[in-house]
Design a protein around this nucleic acid. Structure first.
Lengths: 345, 345
DNA sequence: ATGAAAGCGCTAACAA
DNA sequence: TTGTTAGCGCTTTCAT
């Protein structure tokens, strides 16, 4: 069925398009009579043409969002937050993924600009170092907000998890139970967040007056169960094995859990265990896995809000203020790290 | 920095906008000289205004996608497929979620129409029965493609998983190992897909010449681990307990796994177990859980392709052909259902 | 090979 | 209170 335009309605009512437009947008100076007439005609088959309106207003009320992987559970949560916050303010979200590829990140950001968005939300790919492609967007007067994985090289608002505090809390929780031999399975050096978790681990040890024992720090390159398995086995083979393990990731913790089980060690009685990310499976495992939850949904929400605020500021000709938010990670204590009795050191 | 328009370039080069437009779009009749001049000026600061182009072409190369929950792992996979397929054909995807609410589904579909999309991909909410809101979209010449949860009440293309075949394969796999006492933990009656899995179970029994034993069919209302736990316990308390269980969902299977473990039963030696959905955790569990994988990514891809094809057909004035695709589910056999030896019945 | 002009559908300043 | 007019930035006949 063919859609009606303003002109169709105008002809039907016997006025000009301007009048119809005004009637529809509730302008003050409009006679009740014509308003009635317009409304009557309008209900039949009229809807404003979105593109025409947007061209006129020079704003499309759409933002672009780029994540490394849409399917990753963390990003799925972030996207949910982005969409909810954007829709709450009358905007829509176009979604793209970079597949953790620098080249694709460049491609999709360019294409988002070309398709017409009012701003972009970007989580940098692991490969990304140079951010010239994002600076290019800013040159086009498109605000960019970074979240998750960010870069100090870009002058933009950012929203991230407090991985340091998460690592600190996880470790301190173990130490607070009187355990002194607490090990850490850390991730590779590169992604900043795993480094922060390790830093939090060290800070907690220091806060409890304990030295960092290098043999208690195992490292895995890929944060996968197989590597967690190997690291845990290695740790438990030490002459003085740890009483607890803080793993950089749930995947790693799950691998460690398997290794401990195979070694005939009980969790948490023999070894307490804490993971990171709080995957949905944590509470389904046996024993349920303690973990540090990353506020994915909130990160998405706040990034969305910051971006929309900047877009508004740009439209209003106000100065655009950047903001850097660091959201708390939340330790969720479950069976795997909750000892019935806190043994003496 | 202010963006350049066609007119800016035209003035700089000393020609009209029409010429610039033609030069940029590689029209045949254009002198090499002016083309050079235009290209030189263009590289400085010109990018076509997306909204102006779209208004002119009367097509925005954007589709809307509505899922019940963005954060759900199955939909995250679907979305990934939708986005990849759309981008492969030069389109973008605006994402929305209905939160499994009929009212919100109506709201977001209306808003997607109002914001301007060329078509919609929709997975109906569990609450949705009436599809007038989608028919309304079709009345606006917007093609709609349904995926995942569909409705026969709407005349539209559909893409779904073959849950029946998945249920059949899971059950047959257990029966093929010589087990005869195979139980099923089914879901509530409403969602069509859980009913199909149950139907597949019954068909497999029949194919192996076995009767349906009602006491071997347990039912849970919500597909959650706690209910799986209870159902498994109930099944194993039978005078003649089953040798295998096919659970309607991984969550249910995980609960069952816990129940079997607590009862001191070994999996798969005492009881074999198969779930459905193939969550990422399946291979992390101990024993690794066999499960039937739903082709989420492919569903998204194909739905996207069908929609874009219909949009194209509509533009070309060709008749729009609807298509109904049923994608195979894939049984992934892991430890939990792989007996070393197939015992006699 | 290029220019002039119409128009996509809408909004808004200015007139009347 | 309503009509007139002038765009938004682009594409595409139709002339030249």
């Amino acid at each position: 069925m063919k859609r009606a335009t303003l002109r169709d309605v105008a002809q039907a009512v016997g006025v000009t398009v301007a009048t119809v437009s005004r009637a529809l947008r509730n302008y003050p100076d409009i006679s009740p009579a014509t308003k009635q007439a317009v409304l009557a005609a309008e209900r039949l088959r009229y809807a404003p043409h979105p593109l025409a309106v947007k061209l006129r207003q020079k704003s499309c009320r759409v933002v672009g969002a780029v994540v490394p992987q849409i399917g990753h559970p963390f990003f799925a949560g972030v996207i949910s937050g982005i969409v909810d916050a954007a829709e709450a303010r009358g905007c829509h979200v176009i979604l793209s993924q970079s597949d953790e590829s620098y080249e694709k990140e460049i491609r999709v950001t360019q294409r988002l600009r070309a398709t017409g968005v009012d701003g972009l939300l970007v989580c940098l790919s692991d490969q990304t170092v140079d951010v010239a492609h994002l600076r290019d967007l800013q040159d086009y007067d498109l605000p960019v907000v970074l979240f998750g994985k960010i870069s100090p090289a870009l002058d933009a608002s950012t929203v991230v998890t407090n991985d340091f505090q998460g690592g600190y809390d996880a470790t301190a929780h173990l130490l607070a139970q009187g355990l002194t031999r607490v090990a850490h399975i850390k991730g590779a050096a590169h992604p900043e967040n795993t480094r922060q978790r390790y830093a939090g681990y060290r800070a907690a040890l220091a806060a409890y007056g304990l030295p960092l024992r290098p043999e208690y720090v195992a490292e895995c390159q890929r944060v996968a169960p197989a590597e967690g398995f190997a690291c845990a086995r290695q740790l438990m083979a030490l002459p003085e094995p740890p009483q607890a393990i803080f793993a950089v990731t749930d995947a790693v913790a799950i691998g460690a859990l398997a290794a401990l089980g195979q070694a005939g060690l009980r969790v948490p009685q023999d070894v307490a265990l804490v993971g990171f990310s709080d995957w949905a499976v944590c509470e389904l495992l046996d024993p349920a896995l303690s973990s540090v939850a990353r506020p994915g949904y909130e990160i998405g929400q706040q990034a969305s809000e910051l971006l929309l605020r900047e877009i508004q500021q740009l439209r209003d000709g106000q100065p655009v203020v950047h903001e850097h938010r660091v959201l708390a990670a939340t330790l969720r204590v479950r069976q795997s790290s909750a000892r019935a009795t806190a043994p003496a050191s």
